[in-house]
Design a protein around this nucleic acid. Structure first.
Lengths: 329, 329
DNA sequence: CTGAAAGCGCTAACAC
DNA sequence: GTGTTAGCGCTTTCAG
């Protein structure tokens, strides 16, 4: 494998001059530039990224941390992030936390060891005080999650409004007993969603119940489980804001198999507007969210900090969501 | 940020000794080892990976190339790969080809520029002659795809058997007019699946038709599109092997909305055994495949080549699949 | 416009 | 057991 010195020797110039050509620097005579370029092509030479990275102290790599990639919301988010990152000349490292604090710290260590230039957190497992010290190693950004105090850029959905809209819709459909599902109840984004939910209930003098609130609702199987829990209740909710289309699909399917009429016996509203909503029977009412845009904005923002070489500061971008009514409500 | 020299100075030893402690080499006195360890901890020092990588010419990073991450099969595959890679001390870079030859070459360039130690190809866009020259830069492995000649490790499903089993099942259900969907018809894995399909038909003296074969069948929307094409045919198939659960779900949903009885008017069999199969109405008959195992085996195999520092050679591992019967057939 | 020289932070012969 | 030395391959002052 040829290196820059070999190219320099063949062209009878210094490594510096070759480097200038490689990096499109000015002040190289047209003649030499041509010669060097042709030798580079001939020998099929490409610069060693490792050496470059060490020298410039940049990796052009971003890490994206998510609970689990195996979920269509995060799949789409990563797709959006990955595409935009590639356009901007960055690579993307995937890190899954599986809701584990230690795994999240491993991502932080990548930043510390100079393996990546920045981190996009698509979930937040640790306390902010644990994350904060890592800011000195490079920019960190919160995406799809919220924190009330953390001093970093936050790009998220308007969760409060989403929760509010969903429940307003259910109330308008005549429901008075409405339940809620958390992905994880320690997520502040989910807490805000719940606030919106509660606000809408309060405005109509309605209340929810503890036993109508479910935690760890992430995928279809969680939906199966949650339906079973609901089905055992004496006083059942008549409507449910699941916070997630997969969970909605699981609940709906199990309900139908158990003889429920949807939405008459149980109205269900999802979140994300995945294609899944269109193939179930009944189709699923949901909250539509701009996933790709969330990804793009996150990438642009973190690259801005990387390029600017500046410490991140708190700034909040809230993307708005929209209610999409289908057959399940 | 402290470096190895600083640690050495404080401990009044050479960088070498510090390096030995860092890498758990023997021949360091217990006393110095303790002293150095404690200073490392105190200063919160971690070695710069970039420098290490340059020196050792290793990155401990694998790239996984897939058409699009935004698909539950590839999401699960990446999950399996990513988990096992982390266990083995490797990071995973995600690369999406979007079925584009150029994007696949970008992955190859990562290998050439020393940005990764090996590549797992979850799809194959270019001719083998285009890929082959890159083998000199590091190990490449084919996963979930097949090639009749390529001299590299191939870990795939027994596609022939899967196609055969699926069609046998449809024939036993009384079907004589059976259609087929390709993800991409240039995929040799898919071709093998088709061979199995044809073998089963031939054994029963049945034939398929060109207009019952559909290409670019990847997701739910493709399923919608394909149903519309079927619905326009004069002579329609009565059963379909879609090669993909999403496509199956899309076809089934559109069929039901258009008044078809499933499976009476149209039997549909998917592939992958995603959870999606369990929430549609009717539930979807499919081919169950060991996705996580495919990922794990791929990682173990490529790491074996990386560690052994040897050129890859052709070897084929075929994982077997199983028919899972539900309501759609 | 061009090149010499220094050095990013680390590891690994090799000598003692 | 330990330290000296020489790079890995590149970019970037700085001097000419």
């Amino acid at each position: 494998m040829p290196n820059i010195e070999e190219i320099a020797k063949i062209c009878k110039v210094s490594k510096t001059t070759v480097s200038r050509v490689l990096n499109n620097h000015p002040y190289v005579s047209e003649e030499k530039r041509r010669k060097i370029s042709s030798v580079i092509k001939e020998l099929d030479y490409t610069p060693n990224s490792l050496a470059r990275n060490l020298r410039t102290n940049k990796t052009y790599t971003l890490a994206i941390s998510v609970p689990s990639i195996d979920h269509s919301f995060f799949g789409q988010l990563i797709k959006g992030i990955s595409n935009e990152a590639f356009v901007q000349g960055y690579k993307v490292l995937i890190c899954q936390t599986f809701y584990d604090k230690q795994n999240e710290l491993k991502v932080m260590n990548l930043l510390r060891n100079n393996e990546i230039d920045g981190v996009i957190l698509g979930t937040l497992e640790n306390e902010w005080t644990v994350i904060e010290p890592h800011l000195k190693y490079g920019p960190i950004l919160l995406c799809n999650e919220y924190h009330e105090k953390a001093s970093l850029p936050i790009i998220c959905y308007d969760e409060f409004e989403a929760g509010y809209k969903a429940v307003r819709h259910l109330i308008e459909k005549g429901h008075k007993k409405i339940g809620f599902c958390y992905d994880t109840s320690y997520s502040q984004a989910q807490r805000q969603r719940k606030e919106g939910f509660l606000k809408a209930l309060a405005e109509s003098n309605l209340q929810t119940r503890n036993e109508w609130t479910f935690d760890r609702a992430f995928n279809i199987e969680d939906g199966f489980r949650i339906f079973n829990e609901i089905n055992k209740l004496n006083e059942k909710p008549t409507a449910l804001f699941t916070g997630n289309d997969q969970v909605a699909a699981g609940i709906i399917k199990k309900a139908i198999v158990n003889g429920y009429e949807i939405p008459e016996d149980l109205a269900v509203i999802g979140y994300d507007n995945q294609l899944l909503c269109q193939v179930t029977t009944p189709t699923i009412t949901t909250i539509g969210i701009p996933i790709i845009e969330l990804g793009i904005q996150s990438v642009l923002k973190i690259i801005q900090y990387i390029r600017g070489n500046e410490g991140v500061k708190r700034e909040i971008i809230r993307l708005s969501t929209k209610l999409i009514v289908r057959e399940s409500t």
